[in-house]
Design a protein around this nucleic acid. Structure first.
Lengths: 210, 210
DNA sequence: ATGTTTCCACCTAGGTGAAAACTT
DNA sequence: AAGTTTTCACCTAGGTGGAAACAT
């Protein structure tokens, strides 16, 4: 049995770190794919409002293709190949156009609205890969040199053998990116190194004004 | 509304690593308390059977006092002080005799029976402390030189504002221990160093027969 | 030519018991 | 004397981009 929403408050997700995302977006964000799976940086983080505190939800993440092109980086610019490439798309009954495989389920799913709203929800452990059949369920398969936008799906968790109910899907245009196996734009590399603590080995000392 | 159990299958928890626990138990197990919280070693791990796959459960862990004594280690033996010490006990309406504070909630709670039964449930991140008011909710307060036995509580997660229903409590006598701020029995220290990978710095090379 | 894979040094993050300092 | 607290070197575990090797 599905719990009806207690009220008509709209569900609202506030993307965090918008200033950082904007700096990447201004350069065209790139995300690395590896066989073993690579985390996203920046991490997709959202503050949540408008859930029923006592209802159970799943949070899921996937990546919708922004277009049907293959992209290339030439003379400092991202360009499309000109021709469409639809071999990597498929249609999912539940979520619409997306990529192969299941969406990534936030590891705290299922949980109550009260929990999801109590702190920023972050997808820091999802890993992007180009391996066709990843071993772990925290891996999402993407195609290199294709452009994607992250989507968060909120489902009402009903169980009792019934499929969960998709309540709403949120997309975050500011966080769209081109998947790559090696960084193309060296300004992107520099921005990753500057802000990702795990890349500290590559930081050069910098003055305090930036 | 509470889901009735689908059948009368008894819930069953199988303690894992019983051989290792036995070796500690034979020496009287000790667990370290620190201000910042210390993990247990060995880790409490159980295989679960008999849950309804589609019903939602919480798994909780706490520590029941084995007695009302304060213990001391003299001339290679653990002895009671002789006098009772009841200042550190209190009574909890839901769980019976236990220690101060809330039980530790397994971080995957709430989840479906199907999930809990799909793999061994391990409480590797719970931390034992003697700090009166721990900052984190993964800390459990114990009293040094007192003896405890771990208990796992299985609750049916109902939410909708109602309190969860305690279905059953399991105790694991083989895993009982005396809480200490420094190891007393050097054979316990040696056994910890031999089997805990984080203590590898203190391992001496040993032959392959043990 | 273009794109991918592997291996690596160098980090983050945090779990060990030892030993010395401290408390009562 | 007995027990606690702090600091530390040394680990586990795993996330970075670079660079060279590899593939097509």
């Amino acid at each position: 049995s599905v719990y009806p929403r207690a009220d008509a408050t709209p569900i609202h997700l506030d993307l965090q770190d918008t200033e950082l995302w904007s700096r990447f977006e201004a350069l065209s964000t790139e995300m690395i794919l590896t066989k073993g799976g690579r985390r996203m940086f920046p991490v997709l983080r959202v503050a949540v409002r408008g859930l029923d505190p006592e209802t159970l939800y799943d949070f899921k993440l996937d990546f919708a293709p922004c277009d049907n092109f293959r992209w290339r980086y030439v003379t400092g610019q991202w360009q499309t190949n000109g021709k469409q490439d639809i071999t990597n798309l498929n249609q999912d009954r539940r979520y619409g156009v997306t990529v192969k495989g299941e969406p990534y389920s936030h590891p705290k799913s299922p949980n109550y609205g009260r929990f999801w709203m109590s702190d920023v929800v972050e997808f820091k452990n999802v890993k992007l890969t180009n391996r066709p059949n990843p071993v772990k369920d925290d891996h999402i398969i993407l195609n290199s040199l294709h452009k994607y936008k992250p989507r968060i799906h909120i489902l009402q968790s009903v169980s009792n053998g019934q499929p969960n109910v998709l309540l709403e899907t949120f997309t975050f245009p500011l966080t769209s990116f081109i998947a790559v196996t090696a960084y193309q734009n060296e300004e992107i590399t520099a921005l990753k190194i500057r802000h990702n603590p795990f890349a500290k080995a590559f930081q050069e000392p910098r003055d305090r004004t930036d």
